[in-house]
Simulated scan of single mutants.
Amino acid sequence: MRRILIIAPNWIGDAVMSQPLLAQLHKNYPAAQIDVLASKWVAPIYRACHEVHEVLEADLQHRQLQWNLRKKLAKQIEVSQYEACFVLPNSLKSALIPWLANIPFRIAYRGEMRFGLINLALNNPSKINRPPMVEHYLALASALETADQAPHFETVTPELQVPVNANTKVLKKLQDEGIAPEAIYILCPGAEYGPSKRWPTGHFAKLAQDLISKNPATHVILLGSKADHSLAKSIETQAQYNPHIHNWCGETTLDEAIALISLSKALVSNDSGLMHIGAALQVPQVAIFGSSDPHHTPPLSAKAKVIWLQLPCSPCHQRECPLGHLNCLNHILPENVLLSVESLH
């Protein structure tokens, strides 16, 4: 095997959890070049994976066919003569490019009527009996092996490297703001999936204030995408615009966010992509779960603590609380999260 292509998933957390698959493929085929086709949104994750030779960044949009763009990309990819392609999303459209590019082995889970587009298919596990996502992706590595060749997979954790250029930019930004790198905590109030995964902004505000009151040298950075800026603004307001609380949501690239998280004394987040980045960087962290299941998408790090109340109604996997009370998150109190943060050191 000389050249392998990966079709990346659409979510940051899923991209992080696919890194052990890359590591296993690199182990199985040490002479192979592993490239990744990824949207601009998740491409920085793969630039932080040392197994990846090249990231092919494309303007692929979620839930859009973009037929002409996919045909164009397929023509470009066909020239590289990839021998195998691992398609990580379950959608029909994600399987089109390797099929159009005539890649001989197209490996993925069965899904969304893509018979023929995928020619080495694994059965998709039921939603009731889903394995952790890392194991789900990792199992694809055995698709090219015979039964007696299939390697044994041990439990592995994702690993990311901090981009050097991003680290330099982040250190300069901290210096310009008068923030000592060793004195920052990162709070991530967002979660793309919906409100049922977001710890209340009032709780984040109280936690930020408590962290600063414990040590006046502390600075709290609110980190996330542009979509999270309003959540962070609410935290600032409820914390009475404490000058040691900084709303940087939407003000950093994902590469810079990786660098910032790597510097933090601790990360506190919802079940989100940034949570998985923190775990892959082995940063001390507290991960707050509400409607989702920490058994399926946990932060895979010995330095992570998970807070989940395990209420009878949780996990419901709904975007908004179907019962209207959001007790799974409202009842996780700031003082309890603070105790967990303090126990990390």
Results as ranks from 00 to 15, higher is better:
Met1Leu: 14
Ile7Asn: 02
Trp11Glu: 03
Gly13Leu: 03
Asp14Lys: 06
Ala15Ser: 15
Ala15Phe: 01
Val16Pro: 12
Ser18Asn: 07
Leu21Val: 02
Leu22Asp: 00
Ala23Val: 00
Ala23Gln: 14
Gln24Asn: 01
His26Gln: 15
His26Arg: 14
Pro30Val: 06
Ala31Leu: 03
Ile34Thr: 08
Val36Leu: 09
Val36Arg: 07
Lys40Cys: 06
Ala43Pro: 00
Pro44Trp: 03
Tyr46His: 01
His50Cys: 02
His53Ile: 05
Leu60Cys: 04
Gln61Thr: 05
Arg63Phe: 08
Arg70Thr: 11
Gln76Asp: 10
Gln81Cys: 11
Leu88Val: 11
Ser91Ile: 09
Leu92Cys: 10
Leu92His: 12
Lys93Leu: 09
Leu96Arg: 06
Pro98Thr: 14
Arg110Met: 06
Gly116Leu: 07
Leu117Tyr: 05
Leu122Met: 13
Asn124Val: 12
Asn124Thr: 15
Arg130Lys: 13
Glu135Gly: 05
Ser142Leu: 04
Glu145Tyr: 01
Asp148Pro: 08
Ala150Ser: 10
His152Asn: 01
Pro158Lys: 07
Gln161Tyr: 13
Gln161Asn: 12
Val162Trp: 00
Val162His: 14
Leu171Asn: 10
Glu182Val: 14
Ile186Thr: 13
Leu187Thr: 03
Cys188Trp: 00
Gly190His: 01
Ala191Leu: 05
Pro195Gln: 06
Ser196Lys: 00
Trp199Lys: 09
Thr201Trp: 05
Phe204Asn: 09
Lys206Val: 15
Ile212Pro: 02
Ser213Ile: 15
Lys214Ala: 08
Asn215Phe: 05
Asn215Asp: 15
Ala217Leu: 07
Leu223Pro: 00
Gly224Phe: 06
Gly224Trp: 05
Ser225Val: 13
Lys233Gln: 14
Lys233Phe: 03
Glu236Pro: 03
Glu236Ser: 07
Gln240Asn: 13
Asn242Tyr: 07
His244Arg: 12
Ile245Tyr: 05
His246Val: 13
Gly250Leu: 08
Leu254Ala: 07
Glu256Ile: 10
Ile258Thr: 04
Ala259Arg: 12
Leu263Ala: 02
Ala266Gly: 01
Asp271Arg: 05
His276Ile: 06
Ala280Thr: 08
Leu281Arg: 11
Gln285Pro: 01
Val286Tyr: 05
Phe289Thr: 01
Phe289Gly: 01
Phe289Lys: 04
Gly290Lys: 10
His295Leu: 14
Pro298Gln: 14
Pro299Val: 11
Leu300Lys: 13
Ala302Arg: 08
Ala304Gln: 07
Ala304Cys: 09
Val306Glu: 03
Pro312Gly: 07
Cys316Asp: 09
His317Gln: 12
Gln318Cys: 13
Glu320Ser: 15
Pro322His: 12
Gly324Asp: 04
Cys328Asn: 03
Leu329Tyr: 00
Leu329Asp: 00
Asn330Pro: 02
Asn330Leu: 07
His331Asp: 14
His331Tyr: 09
Asn336Glu: 14
Asn336Ser: 13
His345Arg: 13
